[in-house]
């Protein structure tokens, strides 16, 4: 438990963490505001949150990559991971504690972002903010789960690369500009089972693809990807020279 608390205070004392939180809330809310009053569509709000997930991704990536940031030219190769692993040498426990912190902070961030986006959206559309149907709630739960799983995906990938550059490049490009996964569905239907695209079924009702997955199945597919990745990442993290 003290490992979890230490990891939480470690993350919260990183300026990049707060940057990720601000991005996660402001980007999707800002897009809603800028988009203005168009005719309501089924994925309103969710589309913006699917872009805002980059805040959660950055959060997951920096939780791991900050351990490996070099201290700078002056001190040859000193990295925080040395301090972390001498303080908590049981690496499996450390990896899980970090994952727990990443998952729970991105959970809170996702709730904040979802609340902000739909408040702004509904106010601008003149719909009651609290007039939520069961389907609305299920989809909001879905988008929150999507954020949590995406942050864990970023965390797990960074455990392999030890640097945030590649995971950020791959995940951010994929979720903000052109969805490579989506383009791949044009080549093979199997691409529908890639984690990000499968996970989007949890909230999106407007994915134009040939294969349809139910929200639950989509979420399950993504969860299996993430769980598998974390299991392998934990093994690698525990065995490799720091």
């Amino acid at each position: 438990m003290r490992t979890v608390r230490a990891e939480l205070s470690k993350l919260a004392s990183l300026p990049a963490f707060w940057f990720a939180c601000v991005v996660g809330v402001l980007v999707p809310t800002g897009i809603v505001l800028l988009a203005g009053r168009a005719a309501p569509r089924v994925d309103d709000g969710y589309q913006e949150l699917a872009v805002g997930v980059l805040g959660a991704i950055v959060l997951g990536v920096i939780a791991m990559s900050s351990e490996y940031t070099s201290e700078g030219a002056e001190s040859a190769g000193g990295r925080q991971i040395n301090t972390t692993l001498t303080a908590v040498p049981t690496r499996g426990r450390l990896f899980l504690a970090k994952a727990l912190v990443v998952g729970s902070t991105s959970f809170v961030l996702a709730i904040l972002a979802t609340t902000a986006v739909f408040s702004v959206l509904r106010l601008s559309q003149g719909v009651g903010v609290l007039a939520l149907t069961g389907d609305d709630l299920a989809r909001m739960g879905g988008v929150i789960a999507y954020w949590v799983l995406m942050s864990l995906l970023g965390y797990g990938l960074t455990a392999f690369t030890r640097s945030g550059i590649i995971p950020l490049a791959v995940l951010l490009v994929n979720s903000s500009t052109v969805s490579v996964s989506y383009l791949l569905t044009k080549a093979t239907p199997l691409a529908n089972y890639l984690p990000d695209l499968a996970g989007m079924r949890m909230f999106s009702r407007d994915l134009a693809t040939d294969v349809e997955l139910s929200p639950l199945l989509g979420g399950a597919v993504m969860a299996v990807w993430v769980a598998g990745l974390l299991i392998v990442a934990k093994l690698v993290f525990a065995r490799r020279d720091a």
Binding site: S9, S13, L14, E71
Partner: peptide, 18 residues
């Protein structure tokens, strides 16, 4: 070990605290 073992963007106190 080599260097401070602290992340550059944290304060010294925040480092010791965690």
């Amino acid at each position: 070990l080599d260097g401070s073992g602290a992340h550059r963007s944290r304060t010294g106190r925040a480092h010791l605290r965690w």
